[in-house]
Every structure is written in C-alpha cells, then in structure tokens.
Design a protein around this nucleic acid. Structure first.
Lengths: 260, 260
DNA sequence: TATTTTGTCTCACTATATGAAACGTCGTTT
DNA sequence: AAACGACGTTTCATATAGTGAGACAAAATA
C-alpha cells in the first residue's frame, strides 16, 4: 500500500511493528507474511531487527512474535507527556465526581481513537489495561467529535484510508453519510454515538479545542441505553462542554506531521 | 557508543526515540545534539522520520519533540501481551490482599527495571502512570533479583554498559561490589534493597523463574524504614517466594535477542 | 522414505542514509 | 542599522545498508 509520505526503512519497520501489535496476540512469521506488503526475507529481517531492538519479543518455543516491554517503558513517557491525560485529569476528576457514568478522554492516531483516560463509574483510576485501547473513529462519539473539527485535508486523508465495518445496524458504512453527520456535529459542537459501535451503548462527546481552535482530542460521557435515553444524555451537555473547554484552554498546541 | 549488535537504520532511529523519551520532557533538537552520537543533519532527519511516523510529536511553537500517542497505542498491546502483568495479576492480588505494603512486579529492559505492575497499599489498581516507570537495576531489589539470575554473558553485557550513580550512601558504585552481592542473592534466592535507591525505602524481592529456571522478572514488597526494619521484611519471604513461584510456573519462556 | 511447509541464508543489485559544507532565518549585540 | 551568532534546514556526491529471487535447512506431514 503506497503511503503518501513514503518514509524509508524506519517506516517499514514500524509498519511491521504496527501489524504485529494489531494482531492482538503473538503471531508467527507466516501469518504476517499473508497480510504483509513485504517479501519473505525482508519481513524476516525486519522482525529480527525489531526483536534485537526489544520492540518485539520472540518466543522461541512457539516461534511467535509479540510486542516487547521496551514499548511499555516508552509509552509511560509518552502518556505522561504527549497525551492529554495529565492535563485532563483534574477536570475529568471533577466531572466524574458528580456522575455515575463512564467518562472517556481520547486522542486520534491514524484514523483510530486512542483512549488516554477512561473512568468507569466504579473506578477512580485509569488503568493501563484501559488507557491505550483503541476504537474506530467513525462510529464512536469521541471519534466523530474529533473528525468533525479536523482541518479539511486531514479529514480527507483520514476518510480515504478508512474501511467501514458495520458493527451495528446504526453504524455508518460510507464516507458520505459520515461526512453529512460531521457537518451537523461541527455546527452544533457536540457529537452522539447512537449505538453505532456497540448495541446498547450510547454516548455524548465534545471536542477538546485549543484557544486557536485546533482539535487535540475529545471527551465523552458514555452510558447504557437501559440507564439513559439519548435525550437524557443531553442533560450532561453543559457540564461536558465546560469540561472540554477547560482542558482545551490548557492544552498545548500540537502539530501533526509537517508535510513539505 | 558502539552497540555490539550494531543494527542498522532502525536501531539508530530507536536510539533517538529512547533519547527523547529519556529526557522526560519535550526537548529541542539542540539539546539532543549535545548528547547524541549523530551529526546534525542525521539527527534532524531521524527526528523528522519519527515525527512523520507518529512516534514523536513536534510542537511547532516551542520547537520541541516529545514521545507521541502512537506509542501509547502500541504499549497497550505490549503490556497486555508481552509483559508479565496479566499473568501476575491474580497472584499479586492475592499477595497484596493480606498486606499493607507496596507490591511491585518488574521486568528488565536494557539495564533498567521496568515496572509492569505496582500496587500501593492504598490502591487496588495499577495505573499507567505507574506501570512503565523505570529505575536502575543495580540499586533496586527487583533489579538485583533479576540480575542475579541472568545468564553469565547477559549479566556481563548489562554490567558493561552500566553507569553507577550514587543515589544514597548505600548505593553500589562499582560492578565489583555489585557482583559480589549478586553472588549472595543467587545463593539465597532473595534480594534486598537496603535504602540503595532512596533513603528510607527498603524492599525484599524474589526472582520470577520459569520452570526451566530462566528469569523473566521479579516481584518485591517495598516499605519505608519507619514502618518496618529489614528484619521485619524478612517475615514476608515465604509469601513472596511462593507468589513468585506461582507466577513463574505460568510464565511463558521469553528469549532475549538471539545473537548469531 | 518422500513430500510439503516454514524458516533462514546468500549475493549481486539498488535504494537509502550519510555528513561536510552552504544557506536561510531569527534574535541579539555592537 | 549593520554585523554577528545560534539554530534549523537543504544540498549533493559518496558510502552504507536494505532488497528479494532463489537456494538451502529443518521440521512437520503424508
């Protein structure tokens, strides 16, 4: 698949790393070969390199590759620096305190929503098992809230390489219907997930905008349909947008990859 | 610095990534240049590549680089697969339940201890802010417990590139004194941190060994000197070793980088 | 034992990274 | 205002590292 930016060797290695991580379980080289864009010896060497570097671990017995601990180490720094989580934390605390619903903070990474903070009603702490989880952008409240406020060309870029999978009857299955909804979201400043990703789960989400109106993430309140209706969720809107606004005011301004 | 394995471009890029992450804060190129083994244009291009790949984020305003969210995404998978954490979790739960002290589970990555699970007495959950944290191996209980059971050549490799920093009066400051203590640890099967990393903090640590007696990590109980003496800690030894043993029995067998 | 599947190695070839030096830009000093 | 210096960025001839068809080895399967 032709990446537009077309970076060199490092890009190839990282795409393999992504592929391994994407499998969600230890994999053998053979399995990767089927999906991979690389011929056998190249893939073999890339895997070897990544293993030598500690980005992957290799189980000699099962002959499988899996993401390595070095990533965990790096991620700790990433999470505490590059993510919104530390900035958002106090505000999310305040929001969640008055609430019995789940609160999610997300950022976007190549078409996928990455949750950087997740509060369940029952838990006061975000756990690593939860932070870092991903979901598709096009069928979640947090995802759509971000997409709607992305600059034109970034959005097109994201939509272009988006495969639409139908999770529920309500899931968007084409860029066109999604684009139409994003229009509405942009106008209203608020996004809803109407059981589009999982049946019975709805959410209300607000974008996190910097003072310069760059979208850096989003925050949502999610609940189950047997607890609240969509109309009921709307009651949370003022608190949610206020919280998003406060976070945005503090957020640094990030720049996506600068293309020449 | 001449890495023995001497991997190619990817290795260089990752060493830069490490360097940025190691700074613990957003950094400008200039700062990296001082420490870096690379000349200016090379460093510049590596940073650019990593940024394009989303492994780093670039703040245009401050002109600083910091680890990117993509790492958080990858790390979630790494943590839930490659680390001991999921295996250790139930056993750590059981151990921590009868205890009012902190329990740590760690693995080793290039001379540094990476905590993959950390329970404070007050908290029942390990948070991402904690998992992924690192500490030097040579002056922590968990670190020494791992080092002591490392195969000869791996240990030598680790010691070779270890810089000894004196954190407290009790810190080892040479490979020789450390080696001597590791001998004792290997014989006794248990390690102690005698305020070597932080004044007032002591710990007892046991290695986590697979049935094939490969060390895959370690587990410790840490406390403050005003709560327990070192002698007092020794009372926890049976529970600790039993827990380590149970985890080891379930642990997969990992293979460190295979050098030809 | 023959056969297939999967992983590893070789080597001529090619794409990619390299870094000295030059350049632009911005902020500071004379 | 002109000169200076500190950084970031670009150039380009050269050196290095990655590539992949195919051969080979090892292990699983027939």
């Amino acid at each position: 698949m032709g990446v537009v930016t077309g970076d060199g060797t490092v890009g190839k290695a990282l795409s393999v790393l992504d592929q391994v991580a994407g499998m969600g379980r230890p994999v053998r080289m053979r399995e990767l070969l089927e999906t991979s864009e690389f011929p056998k010896p190249t893939l073999y060497r890339l895997l070897q390199t990544l293993t030598n570097q500690g980005m992957l671990t290799y189980d000699t017995e099962a002959q499988t590759y899996a993401p390595g601990i070095r990533l965990v180490r790096l991620a700790h720094v990433a999470w505490s620096q590059a993510s919104l989580a530390p900035i958002a934390r106090p505000h999310v605390d305040a929001l969640a305190a008055n609430l019995r619903e789940a609160v999610h903070v997300a950022q976007i990474d190549s078409g996928q929503v990455v949750f950087v903070d997740k509060r369940q009603a029952s838990t006061k702490f975000s756990t690593l098992a939860q932070a870092g989880q991903v979901a598709p952008a096009y069928c979640t409240g947090v995802g759509k809230a971000i997409l709607a406020f992305l600059p034109e060309e970034d959005l097109e870029q994201a939509l272009l390489q988006q495969a639409f999978h139908r999770y529920t009857p309500a899931t968007h299955t084409s860029a066109d219907t999604l684009r139409a909804e994003l229009e509405t979201i942009r106008a209203e400043g608020i996004a809803f997930d109407r059981e589009e990703h999982a049946a019975g789960i709805i959410s209300i989400a607000a974008p996190i905008l910097t003072p310069a109106r760059r979208v850096v993430g989003s925050i949502s309140i999610a609940t189950a349909t047997n607890r609240h209706s969509l109309e009921g969720l709307k009651a949370f809107r003022p608190a949610l947008t206020e919280c998003a606004h406060k976070i945005g005011a503090e957020a640094q301004s990030w720049q996506p990859p600068a293309l020449p």
